[in-house]
Design a protein around this nucleic acid. Structure first.
Lengths: 270, 270
DNA sequence: TTCTGCAAATCGGTCTGACCAATATGGGGA
DNA sequence: TCCCCATATTGGTCAGACCGATTTGCAGAA
């Protein structure tokens, strides 16, 4: 996949394959984090794909305007997460596990819809459980704001204009995942939720919120989850989330829960 | 001056506070792993206790007979695992970890290896639950074969050659994930497990299977999980997997509580 | 022409030495 | 006694160099 920085293209050394983050949320004495974040951003933006070889360390140092030492620190950190794989004498390659995987190459997209929802049904209750007693007041406020906005939209929207309502509703789930404090779980959940933003899913989802009463019911379930989280009762939060997703599942796929291994496909690792 | 941590006795300068491992399971081109392993061993042996300050980098380089660069790589890796905390201008300290987690904005890098293990702790029990009553006899056979081979390797291996044992042990988890029938969960779990195949993870993991008895215990836990899965008892399978991973986590990161979510939840789970 | 084998180029791993910034320490002055 | 500042300590970064492993490409053999 020819990902090395413009050796072939005429527009050399002006292409921002990797840009160092300037954000203030990175401590000044952890410069390698900025470089690592830049590489992650490049992957997330699709400028680097799994299997691609990164520019060599010396080139990266030039691009990011840091020393090779700092680049190596960044690569070492990324290697620990499986984001990249470093092969001596060969180069540094993008691995399969990285925080913001592109949807195009994601297994998520070509998975059975039912598997997606079932995965959410197993993971999100755990996320809610972690959130309980672990979220900050500010995050509670943000989540409540999302529900309020969603409710207002739900009352306003017609049956033919549910896009915004659905989007905000999903944002509640993503936001809660981000609030759980575990970056890995948060990212995984966000991926699952993001997929349901696909137009095809929107059509499916809109089925069960056409009725204003159904929208109100969904809002109520979100509020119940948030209340449980706020109270610090992890068990209750988990149960509420499970109930919420189960009702979602049953309204989409019906009440049948049979698992017959339809989606089974054994994949070789490496 | 001698500010080396936690020693009351005026020991001589030849005391092996940190010794570099000579094990063959550490690739020659990753010397920093040997240093990291030496520091981990010192902590495990009690020569270094949480809160203690390590010798400074230049001194460590002298002790381990490597360059400061290599020492820094080792410390960076250990810091990412939360084993040590590096404070600029002050020193490198064991264990006393960051008081509050930095919240992720769009920067996803603040997820630590502990997040990976915690994610497994939440997802894999669900995987085991799904597996129960859902796996085929052939898959059961394969899983049992993995455990058997792992056990044979565990009895054969010495304390310095645990690479194969660890790898086979992890393969059990990957194989079970692939057997659960949900492609999304299987893929996610496999990724998490694959990351721990990294040499650095192997070094950390080897801490808790150095003792032959510990290896036997781990094998027994795997058998318990498989038995529960085979019996079709999803609840038991989930519990066994959770117990297994919890013991793994505590033996790696210690029982000290750092993640509110986890510890709170575990307290609550009667 | 195709294949094999060797040598040069490439690339990561490590070492050395230096300088900077943050912190810790200790002594002197109010 | 307490505070402030100069200084020592320590980690963070940079630069340049060398080594070993891998890759690549070309020359020679089949």
């Amino acid at each position: 996949m020819e990902a090395i920085a413009g050796d072939d293209a005429p527009n050399t050394d002006t292409e921002p394959l990797v840009v160092v983050a300037e954000g203030d949320d990175i401590p000044a004495h952890r410069r390698y984090l900025a470089v690592a974040d830049g590489i992650l951003a490049a992957i997330a933006a699709g400028r680097l794909s799994p299997g691609d070889r990164l520019p060599n360390e010396r080139e990266l140092a030039r691009i990011c305007d840091v020393s090779r030492t700092t680049v190596r620190d960044a690569l070492l950190a990324l290697e620990l997460f499986g984001v990249v794989e470093v092969r001596p004498g060969s180069g540094c390659y993008v691995g399969s596990l990285h925080p913001a995987r592109r949807r195009a190459s994601s297994v998520v997209l070509d998975s059975v819809p039912r598997d997606l929802l079932e995965a959410r049904l197993h993971v999100e209750p755990e996320v809610a459980r972690i959130c309980a007693g672990n979220v900050s007041p500010e995050e509670i406020r943000r989540l409540r704001g999302l529900i309020d906005a969603c409710e207002a939209e739900g009352e306003r929207a017609s049956a033919d204009d549910l896009g915004t309502f659905l989007k905000m509703s999903q944002e509640f789930h993503s936001e809660m995942a981000l609030s759980c404090g575990n970056g890995v779980l948060a990212d995984f959940t966000s991926q699952l939720v993001d997929v349901t933003a696909h137009p095809l899913w929107q059509v499916v989802n809109s089925m069960h919120v056409r009725d204003p009463e159904a929208r109100a019911s969904q809002i109520a379930e979100h509020r119940a989850i948030l209340a449980a989280v706020e109270s610090g009762d992890g068990e209750l939060a988990s149960a509420q989330m499970r109930r919420h997703l189960a009702s979602l599942e049953s309204s989409i796929f019906g009440s049948g829960r049979r698992r017959d291994g339809i989606s089974r496909q054994r994949r070789r690792s490496r």
